[in-house]
Amino acid sequence: MRGRGVEFEGRAWLFGDGISTDHIAPGRYFHLRSNLNELAKHVLEDAREDFAKNVQPGDIVVGGRNFGQGSSREHAPTIIKLAGVSAVIARSIARIFFRNCINVGLPVIICDTSGIAEGDILAIDLEKGLIEDKTRKLKIAFSPLPPVMTRILRDGGLVPHILKHGDFSIGT
């Protein structure tokens, strides 16, 4: 089954290794956590100051190693999503950040990002497990997500998933 939102295209924003949740949602904006739209104005501010002002709907965040390391603050993937980002892809992704992305309905991919340059146009097919860097004519394969995560992501996140099925609806 190929649902909506499985294939999409966007422009790459490049980030380095070890981007932490403190880069994404800095502690000095702790008081904005109950005001996510305001907090989103500072998304990734400590990694790239130009990001929050210029990010366009559909853009893709491309990270290096261990993207999203650090705190469990779900505000981090939530404000990346609120900023209009369509997916986060990185060489490796910290565990809590990874599951938070799934739970808030933000596509997340682990793959070799070394060939991707700033501003490249990326076409992603989540189910085939393929990224095409259209600018560089480069194909990057990745392992599609396990079925449990695909299910939750396709429902739009864990809360919509539970609301839709009345409970978990994942074969374990």
Binding site: S72, R73, E74, I96, R99, N100, N103, V104, G157, L158, V159, I162
Partner: peptide
């Protein structure tokens, strides 16, 4: 183990 707000809410 640490998890996000949604996980813990559920």
């Amino acid at each position: 183990t640490g998890m996000g707000s949604t996980d813990v809410a559920v």
